[in-house]
Design a protein around this nucleic acid. Structure first.
Lengths: 216, 216
DNA sequence: GCGTAACCTTACGCACGAGTAAGTAGGGTG
DNA sequence: CACCCTACTTACTCGTGCGTAAGGTTACGC
């Protein structure tokens, strides 16, 4: 009756549908029947092409993660200054989230709460954190060359800062995903100011103490 | 056979068990039987005292949220300087997360991904974000009195910054929840440096631009 | 024009888990 | 001691939804 389509096409349709349903309902509440229906196909086809529910979810996760990584990597020129790399990376990141709000939700909200996939996700997250930590370290080294030599930072500090920054970015991304009217470009600018100015001050050795308002 | 205990005691035991199970398995994968068993009681008692699964989860959410709020509020002296308020609040916050890692997970990871409770949680989150935005605004006003009058900040900027900070704190809290060896006090210090020094620089009007490394 | 392989369906088995009915025991009060 | 109310149990019903068995249909090679 309806068109018979080649496997590759159907698989993408199924993944599209699955991302939407997982995103709206959550992993457990999503039913394979609903996914199949939304994909315009019957359930056994989903099993035939993409396997059981776990595998299907993992497939969604991997497709969306790959797209995100490629979008970010594609926006960054590796030869640019660290701050420009960061800026372009953030732009690409928030643009992606703005364009694929469903994908973002699947990737970060759902996967995190399902213990079965938390490991997979933690791996991606760790890689991102390490990249960011590397950028910070590079920026710090460059700042040292420029003028001051005050650097109290140890490797762990970079990692912790990177962790905090990634969290901040995710938080803004969630906000973006929930607010249809927000402009990705502006979100990226906010994040960039937030990161760069703050990090710059911190990396110059300015520290807050309990007994004094701040030290410079 | 086993002791008969008054209602109030049993309820707390049930909530303790529920928080643990919800935290480990996720809302859907958690079974009422397992919760009942862990609480050392039979399932109908859970229904009799705390209602259906939804209500039970909400009860967990509310108990943990209340505890968290009280812990933070209890650590803060409202008459102190803004930076000290922030510092004490962060200390209390990370101490709480360190001590109630399960509760934290239920509160933030699980609740967020379940559309049914996302609203409830978003409300709490919004309140927190607004408090933080208020602190920032207060700090900014104080800084203005002290010396410079350069303030490019509009209300939305405070809100966005607060959002990013809350995300950063959550991220560090997740890290803390996952790393048994990490010290809550140190995490709080990291966050404080991160927030205060960065915010200070930002609120003085330092901004990053596309064509220049930074402005001061 | 016929086999065969890929595409696609309906219709079911089966397990798991939410929620309940109906009934038992303990301990305080008259 | 009879009462009754609260704490507590075993033992079910029943819906929901994953995963599959078995069979139908289109296209393409030969």
């Amino acid at each position: 009756m309806l068109k018979r389509l080649p496997r590759v096409v159907r698989e993408q349709q199924m993944l599209d549908a699955a991302v939407k349903v997982f995103s709206n309902r959550g992993f457990h509440a999503a039913s394979m029947d609903e996914i199949a229906e939304l994909a315009g196909i019957s359930k056994p086809m989903v099993y035939a092409y993409l396997g059981a529910k776990d595998e299907l979810f993992l497939a969604c996760l991997q497709r969306e993660a790959t797209r995100l990584m490629e979008a970010v990597a594609g926006g960054v020129r590796p030869t640019a200054r660290p701050d420009e790399q960061l800026w372009n990376g953030l732009r690409a990141f928030f643009a992606f989230v703005g364009a694929h709000r469903d994908g973002w939700r699947v990737l970060y909200q759902q996967a995190r709460s399902e213990p079965r996939f938390a490991g997979e996700l933690a791996g991606m997250r760790t890689r991102i954190v390490e990249v960011v930590a590397g950028l910070l370290e590079g920026a710090c080294a460059q700042a040292d060359l420029a003028s001051r030599t005050r650097t109290p930072a140890r490797p762990d500090d970079f990692l912790a800062m990177a962790y905090a920054y990634v969290g901040a970015a995710e938080s803004l991304a969630d906000w973006l995903a929930d607010h249809e009217e927000e402009d990705p470009e502006q979100t990226a600018t906010r994040m960039m100011n937030f990161v760069w100015v703050g990090a710059d001050a911190l990396l110059q050795g300015r520290v807050w103490h309990t007994d004094r308002s701040q030290a410079g």
